[in-house]
């Protein structure tokens, strides 16, 4: 299960790196003529204090990947932290989907891909067995 989480986190990481580079360079060929893509990636919601949201996403995916790797190797702390990290990403994704649907009225395909990756991670986090309390 954790191996699957690693693969999903890697896919999310690749997507987030691509969007971060796009945000830093102003390169937009990837939108492929989609006006919605510009509306989302060019909106005020695409940055937090000047930092591209995609960059924060890349850091989050990398963190979740690391936790999944350590959890797969039996590191107890990683097993405990993994669902919390995914929950944080899940809530952030819900907020971003809300913004796209009800504020911007536009969806960016790369953001939807990332949302799908996070939903899959959340599904895995729910399906994984709960870590037993310390000392048991």
């Amino acid at each position: 299960m954790y191996t699957l989480a690693e693969l999903i986190a890697l896919a999310g990481l690749a997507d987030a790196i691509y969007l971060t580079v796009q945000a830093l360079t102003g390169e937009t060929l990837t939108c492929g003529g989609s006006p919605d893509c510009f509306r989302v990636l060019g909106s005020a919601y695409a940055r937090v204090a000047g930092v591209p949201v995609a960059g924060l996403g890349a850091a989050a995916y990398f963190g979740v990947f690391g936790l999944a790797v350590f959890a797969a190797c039996g590191y107890r702390r990683a097993v405990q932290l993994f669902p919390w990290a995914v929950t944080g990403m899940f809530l952030a994704t819900l907020w971003l989907l809300f913004v796209q649907a009800f504020v911007l009225h536009a969806f960016c395909r790369y953001c939807l891909f990332s949302a799908a990756a996070t939903f899959l991670l959340a599904g895995l986090a729910v399906a994984l067995p709960r870590p037993s309390p310390p000392g048991l």
Binding site: A23, G33, S34, F38, R39, L41, G42
Partner: peptide
């Protein structure tokens, strides 16, 4: 992409944001 947009001003704003 923008030539046929109705609200081109806000569209260019998204370019500025990008």
């Amino acid at each position: 992409t923008w030539s046929h947009e109705a609200d081109v001003r806000s569209f260019f704003e998204s370019f500025a944001g990008t």
